Amino acid sequence: MMIAAIALCAAVLWMQADLFNEHEYTLIIVNRNPIDLANALLIAIVSVTCISFLVEIALWLSNCVDDCCFQFAILFRFVFILVTAILVIIFNVQLSAFANKEEMKDSMYSSLQRYQGEFLTNPDSMAWNLVQMKYEVCGVNGPGDYTKTPWYKFRTVDYKVVPFTCCIGIVDVYHIDLPRYGAWPEKVYPLVRLNPNSDRIINQCYNMQDPMNPKKRKVMEKGALNPVYDDLTSDYTHNFPLIVLVVFILVCQIAVLIISIAACVTHRKAAKIVAAEMTRQEIEERNRRRQK
């Protein structure tokens, strides 16, 4: 049971870490407070489960099998089930809060205001460049969002109305590497590079931008809000294996509680039989002594 519990907890943590790594930069531009809290709660659920199993095994190995020990084990398990259930409820509430589209939109607009350019490696700039290429989008609701940003106000050339990470085909010539260094926690040092033939695509993108004729644009017209919202909420709030694993942890806790109660009842019955047998033997011994 203990090995299964540890394997289960490791699977949950691996799945949570895998989800976070997949959306590491995407999460920068959205409201991360609920998802950060949900991740912390998930770790707490796993920790509570591991600790409870370890303590219970220590109880059984201590050769303490009297009624007090059984009562403590049952109370201990009940408290841990209650704590786990509360954590699971809060975990799901936080994931539901994460799926608030209006809050996500506000967070994305706020992040876009901190965008500084295609070659800068501050978190918001990196996140937007990666998101725009990954989802083939531009801005929150569309390219026009950049006209309301400090980046647009201080851009170096007038024809550059959007970053070139919004250009169609830019994914073939613009690359962001995310090498990781050091032991945990690893540090990431982003590296931006352009292919030699990038000028052709970038110049074509900007030269064909015509405010009077949007059809000639070589810019991605779709905004990031809907694709990012659908992707993140699908992975985090509708992730069936993750929810099943968390619920299974709770079921394991309840199963062990039932086993503990059954063991306690069996022990009490055995203790009564032993006590009755000892009483019978004592009575027989007394009768023998009287007969002598």
Score class of each variant (00 low, 15 high):
Thr237Ser: 15
Lys148Val: 00
Ile168Asn: 08
Val265Ser: 03
His23Phe: 08
Cys264Thr: 03
Ser111Val: 01
Leu13His: 07
Gly169Glu: 08
Ala270Gly: 08
Ala73Gly: 05
Ala11Arg: 08
His238Asp: 08
Ile243Gly: 13
His23Gln: 02
Phe91Lys: 07
Gln281Gly: 11
Val247Ala: 15
Ala127Arg: 00
Trp128Met: 03
Ile261Pro: 00
Cys68Pro: 00
Gly139Ala: 08
Ser47Tyr: 14
Arg77Met: 12
Cys205Ser: 01
Asp177Pro: 08
Arg180Asp: 05
Pro163Cys: 04
Lys148Cys: 04
Asn39Arg: 14
Tyr146Thr: 05
Tyr206Leu: 04
Phe240Lys: 15
Val12Gln: 08
Tyr109Val: 06
Leu242Met: 09
Arg280Thr: 10
Cys252Gln: 14
Ser52Asn: 14
Ala73Asn: 06
Pro211Glu: 10
Ile258His: 00
Leu54Gln: 06
Ala38Gly: 04
Lys160Met: 14
Ile201Arg: 01
Val131Leu: 02
Ala73Tyr: 06
Ile86Asp: 06
Met133Pro: 07
Tyr146Asn: 08
Leu27Pro: 06
Leu13Pro: 00
His23Leu: 01
Tyr206Glu: 02
Val228Glu: 00
Lys292Phe: 13
Gln281Pro: 02
Glu136Tyr: 07
Leu82Ser: 09
Ala97Pro: 00
Thr156Tyr: 13
Leu59Gln: 09
Ser234Asn: 14
Ile168Asp: 07
His23Tyr: 11
Phe91Tyr: 11
Leu130His: 05
Ala58His: 07
Ser47Val: 15
Arg193Cys: 00
Asp106Tyr: 14
Tyr206Lys: 04
Pro185Thr: 02
Pro150Gly: 01
Tyr115His: 05
Asn197Glu: 10
Asn287Phe: 08
Lys101Ile: 11
Met15Asn: 15
Tyr181Gly: 00
Leu194Gln: 07
Tyr152Lys: 01
Gly169Trp: 03
Ser125Cys: 02
Leu59Arg: 04
Val256Ser: 12
Leu41Thr: 10
Asp67Arg: 15
Tyr25Glu: 01
Trp128Ile: 03
Asn21Val: 06
Asn287Val: 01
Pro150Asp: 04
Arg32Leu: 05
Ala58Gln: 09
Asn141Asp: 12
Glu277Gly: 14
Arg290Cys: 04
Phe72Cys: 10
Ser111Gln: 03
His267Tyr: 06
Asp158Leu: 12
Pro190Lys: 01
Val244Phe: 14
Pro150Ala: 02
Cys68Ala: 13
Asn63Thr: 11
Cys167Phe: 04
His238Ala: 10
Leu54Ala: 13
His175Lys: 09
Gly182Lys: 04
Asp124Phe: 05
Pro34Met: 01
Glu24Leu: 09
Ile45Cys: 14
Thr147Gln: 13
Gln116Ala: 11
